[in-house]
């Protein structure tokens, strides 16, 4: 989503500063998803479709509530349903519902991997946004993301994901999903306020017997601007494989880290080595004496 902006703290494939005189003076933003309050009604999914003018293909029912089956270029958020039999509570069935979508990482693997200048930006308020007009459709962001979020559209071959309604937030509105949630499972505010709110929620949950309730704000990616309150914060993988310790993969760091400038330097040095060899030693030339020697050898062969 493209917006003229003066608050870009990071820009993909860009080695100099982007305009960023505007700071997040009142703190960065965050969406808090309280899985313990979510009833799986999908109002947020619908609000996302409406605000962003997206319509996914009508899929098939596979006997579960989850629909569509996965995130797509048209479905930037998706309720994932997991049925968990809790062994600590006599195998009681728990319906763990998680609203999936971009986590807006403080250290975004997608942005790190992207080779196209300005296709991915991170704003001072914490939102990680794709600028599809700069996207070349290589899909590196998919390999870079620890949460498997970006999707390439089959129509225009550009990458799409949740924008955290950067267009709404830029003019002081809350994201569309927040506005639609009927239970208060989705809350919006500064990251600090959301952490405080989450702490109160966690305390309440603990008092009701959810000893492992907690906030999911994974430090491996520097924290996120979309956070979860989980009943089982000790086992995030119960929630349809929410990663327990997400971080940018070492392979991605190796691929996109210091190795690149070093490799460029290596290529330049190889060329320079050639140049200075030419200057110091010079070409290896054939002389008339070599031609004569070759001629003598040829004569000998002829008379042998």
């Amino acid at each position: 989503m493209a917006l003229q902006s003066l608050d870009i703290v990071r820009r993909s494939a860009t080695t100099t500063s982007s305009p960023n005189v505007r700071q997040a003076q009142t703190g960065t933003v965050a969406k808090l998803i309280d899985t313990t309050k979510c009833i799986g009604c999908k109002a947020c999914q619908v609000a996302c479709m409406e605000w962003n003018d997206l319509r996914d293909e009508i899929g098939t029912n596979i006997g579960a509530y989850q629909n569509p089956h996965d995130l797509t270029d048209q479905s930037w958020t998706l309720m994932r349903f997991a049925e968990y039999e809790n062994p600590d509570k006599g195998n009681d069935l728990e319906w763990l519902i998680r609203k999936d979508g971009c986590m807006h990482c403080a250290d975004p693997g997608c942005l790190k991997a992207c080779p196209a200048p300005g296709a991915i930006v991170q704003y001072a308020n914490g939102i990680v946004d794709f600028h599809e007009e700069n996207c070349i459709g290589c899909g590196y962001c998919i390999a870079g993301c620890p949460f498997d979020i970006p999707r390439i559209s089959k129509r225009d071959h550009k990458a799409y994901k949740c924008t955290l309604c950067s267009d709404r937030v830029a003019v002081g509105l809350e994201p569309a999903c927040i506005k639609a949630c009927p239970t208060g499972a989705l809350v919006w505010g500064t990251k600090e306020d959301m952490q405080q709110h989450a702490a109160e929620r966690v305390e309440d949950l603990k008092s009701r017997g959810f000893d492992n309730a907690g906030l999911y704000d994974p430090p491996g990616v520097g924290g996120t601007h979309v956070m979860y309150v989980l009943h089982h914060a000790d086992q995030p993988q119960l929630y349809n494989d929410l990663p327990a310790d997400p971080h940018i993969s070492p392979a991605v760091s190796l691929w996109k880290g210091a190795t690149k400038p070093l490799a460029l330097a290596g290529i330049v040095l190889t060329a320079l080595a050639g140049f200075f060899h030419y200057i110091r030693v010079g070409r290896n030339e054939v002389h008339e004496s070599d031609e004569q020697a070759a001629a003598r050898e040829t004569e000998r062969a002829r008379h042998e």
Binding site: Y278, R283, V286, D290, A293
Partner: peptide
């Protein structure tokens, strides 16, 4: 660079031929 350094090599790949002296050397 090796092609530039060893004079006559580029001709081998453009005209296809080298002189006997080049081959001998």
């Amino acid at each position: 660079y090796a092609g530039i350094w060893v004079k006559g090599s580029i001709g081998a790949m453009t005209r296809g031929t080298v002189t006997p002296g080049w081959a001998w050397k």
